[in-house]
């Protein structure tokens, strides 16, 4: 049996002394797409922050293994270089840093880690043009300071662009559809789906079923009160949409 890509066992985590994740279990294999759905306040964002190593989130017990290694021992940047990518719900604005400059730093940091030669400016611009075109991101946008004055849709498209050029092994999408109209949602979904090559895996965290019409999951988990209360296939998402979360939360 091959090693799972991500293996979370009985994870407990807290923020500011408040326990948010309470006995969370999940295994993701290569090439699988998992969706985690849950009501507001269930701890969905906390889970994504714990997995990426955001300061301020404390794991009190349990384990997370990534490619067979203890993920929790790695720094934020090491996790990213090893192929974990968080597509953020609210990407931050960084005035003074042109988007293209930021992207070049990121691409080369990851390439360096993989013992690949760093891209020079020409090669990088070429890559950026190719991938940007698919997402409707032009030259003008990548010259602007990172996320500054970007609309909600532009921010999400830029997150997707980063995913396309960094080619992560495991992408975590935190409410990727919030603030998107239907056209922007399709563009983002196409970008995400392009990464589904049978080897890369996705963890889609979402409040609504809508996104899952475009990024169709292999597994759906209902997340409430800090842990998974039920798992199923994509039909579970439809059932949720129909019944609402209330029924599931009671079950737990």
């Amino acid at each position: 049996m091959t090693t799972p890509l991500l293996e979370i066992e009985d994870l407990h985590a807290r923020v500011c002394d408040k326990e948010i994740i309470k006995g969370f279990n999940l295994t993701i294999n290569e090439g699988e797409v998992h969706a985690i759905m849950g009501p507001n306040g269930a701890g969905k964002s906390t889970l994504s922050n714990v997995l990426t190593g955001k300061p301020g989130y404390e794991v009190t017990s349990g384990s997370v293994r990534y490619k067979g290694r203890d993920l929790l021992k790695l720094s934020v940047e090491e996790r990213a270089r090893e192929g974990i990518f968080l597509c953020m719900q609210y990407p931050v604005e960084i005035p003074g840093v042109p988007t293209s400059t930021f992207l070049k730093h990121a691409v080369n940091a990851v390439r360096k880690h993989q013992n690949l030669p760093e891209l020079d400016t020409m090669e990088f611009i070429k890559l950026l043009r190719e991938e940007g075109k698919k997402l409707g991101i032009g030259n003008e946008m990548i010259k602007r300071p990172l996320n500054v004055g970007f609309s909600g849709g532009e921010k999400k498209r830029l997150e997707t662009l980063q995913m396309s050029i960094l080619k992560p092994q495991l992408s975590i999408l935190d409410e990727a559809d919030s603030g998107l109209d239907i056209d922007a949602l399709k563009v983002v979904a196409e970008g995400v789906n392009a990464l589904r090559d049978g080897r890369r895996s996705l963890l889609v965290i979402t409040h609504y079923q809508r996104l899952l019409n475009y990024i169709v999951p292999d597994f759906v988990h209902v997340f409430a009160d800090g842990h998974i209360v039920r798992s199923g296939d994509k039909n579970l998402a439809l059932e949720l949409e129909e019944k609402g979360y209330a029924g599931f939360v009671k079950e737990s």
Binding site: V76, E77, G96, T101, A106, H113
Partner: peptide, 24 residues
């Protein structure tokens, strides 16, 4: 955090932010 979550090292990220601060 945002920069580090994209693989950019802590020191490099700090340097980028400092230069961005003075860029204005």
């Amino acid at each position: 955090f945002y920069m580090r979550s994209r693989g950019i090292g802590q020191e490099e990220a700090r340097q980028i932010l400092i230069e961005a601060y003075l860029d204005e």
